[in-house]
């Protein structure tokens, strides 16, 4: 058996747990594991404040802070702005046309039961910005 970890995982948001009920912008309810790319796109189209941006994964590194964290660098939107986020390795991102992906999908599946693939450089994730950001 694999060695047991004594590190307590930091809490992830509850809505990523398999079976969580998500409300789309048109009021429709779906389970988190059933969400499709179109659900996010259509919800953003309805939204008056939010718009979807494409965020391409440029780099994935281990965090200096903790082995439980990773630093993911994205190139965001048409201006390809560089944004880095430090997240738990099991934190899921939604990849266009693919679905939930994380730096450590085994851990995501173990902790959340959320079906998940490996987040890789070049993946295009769904992210949000404000529509009227000036």
């Amino acid at each position: 058996p694999p060695p047991s970890s004594t590190v307590a995982p930091p809490a992830l948001p509850p809505y990523f747990i398999k079976g969580s009920i998500i409300q789309l912008a048109d009021g429709e309810l779906k389970r988190v594991e059933d969400l499709k790319t179109e659900d996010f796109i259509q919800s953003a189209e309805i939204s008056s404040e939010l718009k979807i941006d494409s965020s391409t994964v440029e780099r994935i590194e281990g965090s200096h802070t903790s082995p439980n964290f990773a630093v993911v660098q994205f190139s965001v939107g048409e201006h390809r702005a560089q944004v880095s986020v430090e997240v738990l390795v099991e934190y899921p991102f939604f990849v266009f046309g693919q679905g939930w992906s994380s730096c450590c999908p085994d851990r995501t599946t173990q902790l959340l039961e959320l079906p998940c693939t490996k987040l890789s450089v070049g993946d295009v994730c769904i992210s949000l910005t404000l529509k009227n950001l000036k």
């Binding site: 948001p13 509850p14 809505y15 990523f16 969580s20 009920i21 998500i22 409300q23 789309l24 912008a25 309810l29 988190v32 969400l35 659900d39 996010f40 919800s43 939204s47 939010l50 979807i52 941006d53 965020s55 994205f74 965001v76 939107g77 201006h79 702005a81 560089q82 944004v83 986020v85 991102f93 939604f94 994730c125 769904i126 992210s127 949000l128 910005t129 404000l130 950001l133 000036k134």
Partner: peptide, 25 residues
């Protein structure tokens, strides 16, 4: 009989990271 439980419902945008680049006009 099983009492129906109230299940939390989360808005779709909770699940999407807010990667807002700084923009200059």
């Amino acid at each position: 009989n099983v009492e129906p439980r109230s299940v939390p419902v989360f808005p779709w945008h909770s699940l999407v990271p807010f990667l807002a680049p700084t923009q200059s006009d």
